[in-house]
């Protein structure tokens, strides 16, 4: 146990520094296979951080988040395959724009609702996006799209980044991870983040203090969707492959598990969650072909025994208090509010 002097506001950024430095140094010592696995973890970590922004910071439980990374991935893969575009200065903005636009549309419909409705609607609209890429033959059907060329960033004849090089990709993705973390950390400390925190804790009261709740929720939804788009772009640059399964709700649910496993509302937790789950999957898949059974039991165990995530073991209660125990029944909530004369 840590001493009480270490508050989460100090521990969490410190923890991220440790994780980031670890990831930066790993390729110097690790085997190729595990370096590849780490690259996958970094991309997944970016996706999970973006979902944490929604779930942990804004209280919006989205079960369709993979739609945004998937749509961006499809745009990247299709532009490479069908239009022969490899210029990163074109690919990246295009895929981010698509995921942002999609998030704007889905978010506009979804934030009008809350709670269980929000979960169901993001699930359904995410599934609609899945079916769009699955059913329309232009996108390659169930098999998806494979590309051999990788994005390249060149300025005036100077090649700056060639993502086909595994190490170049690794450190580009790493830089993205760090940039996303720092960006979101700053954003959540800014007035915008303070209002968003109010929206999560008590939306009604936050509105009664002069803030447009839906507009803030939508803004967060679009930001999260755009960052997910970055993860989708990186995924195609990493694996050269995009298929409908990347958008399916099982993928969305797994990202959600990653966020919870690591510790929601902490930003660094999702990265640790991605690390843990990918390594676990890799290990279990070696043991048995029925690894999904083990993962399923693991998920259940996390929900029952570690709902505040791994990070909470370090910070003792850094997680949001509303997850910690039972939900208060209305009767209790009323008792909390005092009698009303």
């Amino acid at each position: 146990m840590m001493s009480r002097a270490l508050s989460p506001t100090v521990v969490l950024p410190l923890l991220f520094v440790v994780v980031a430095v670890g990831l930066a140094l790993y390729p110097l010592v690790g085997e190729t296979f595990y370096v590849r696995l780490m690259a996958k973890i970094i991309v997944l970590g970016i996706l999970a951080m973006s979902l944490d922004l929604l779930v942990g910071y804004t209280g919006l439980v989205s079960l369709g988040h993979a739609a945004f990374s998937g749509a961006a991935g499809y745009i990247t893969a299709t532009l490479i395959l069908k239009a022969g575009v490899t210029d990163m200065a074109l690919l990246l903005p295009a895929s981010l724009a698509v995921s942002a636009l999609l998030a704007l549309v889905i978010g506009w419909i979804s934030v009008r609702t809350s709670g269980i409705y929000f979960i169901m609607i993001t699930l359904a609209l995410g599934q609609m996006t899945y079916l769009f890429f699955h059913d329309v033959s232009y996108w390659g059907g169930t098999d998806g799209i494979s590309v051999w060329d990788k994005p390249v960033l060149a300025v005036g004849g100077w090649t700056l980044l060639e993502l086909s090089d595994r190490m170049v990709f690794y450190y580009t993705a790493w830089a993205c991870l760090v940039a996303v973390y720092v960006g979101l950390w700053l954003l959540m400390r800014a007035p915008f983040g303070q209002i968003v925190r109010g929206v999560r804790i008590n939306p009604g009261r936050t509105q009664a203090l002069g803030h447009d709740v839906h507009r803030h929720q939508l803004a967060v939804f679009v930001i999260a969707g755009t960052i997910a788009g970055l993860a989708g772009f990186l995924e195609v640059a990493r694996s050269g492959f995009m298929s409908p399964a990347h958008l399916g709700w099982h993928e969305s649910a797994m990202v959600l598990i990653i966020v919870i496993l690591g510790g929601m509302g902490t930003l660094v937790g999702p990265v640790i969650g991605a690390l843990t789950l990918v390594l676990l999957e890799d290990w279990v898949a070696d043991l048995t072909s029925h690894w999904k059974l083990i993962i399923g039991l693991f998920v259940i165990a996390v929900v029952l025994f570690l709902p505040n995530g791994l990070v909470s073991l370090l910070t003792r209660g850094a997680g949001p208090s509303w997850l910690r125990g039972r939900r208060a029944t209305p009767a209790e909530a009323q008792a909390e509010g005092g009698d009303d004369g």
């Binding site: 439980v61 649910a253 059974l293 399923g296 509303w322 997850l323 039972r326 939900r327 029944t329």
Partner: peptide
């Protein structure tokens, strides 16, 4: 029984875990 009065988020994940378990048991 462990899910009554818990947050929807945890219910979603718990039942998702069950989907994986039931699906895999059926495959077995």
């Amino acid at each position: 029984v462990h899910l009554y009065h818990r947050d929807h988020l945890l219910q979603v994940l718990f039942t998702f875990g069950m989907i994986l378990v039931i699906g895999e048991l059926i495959t077995i």
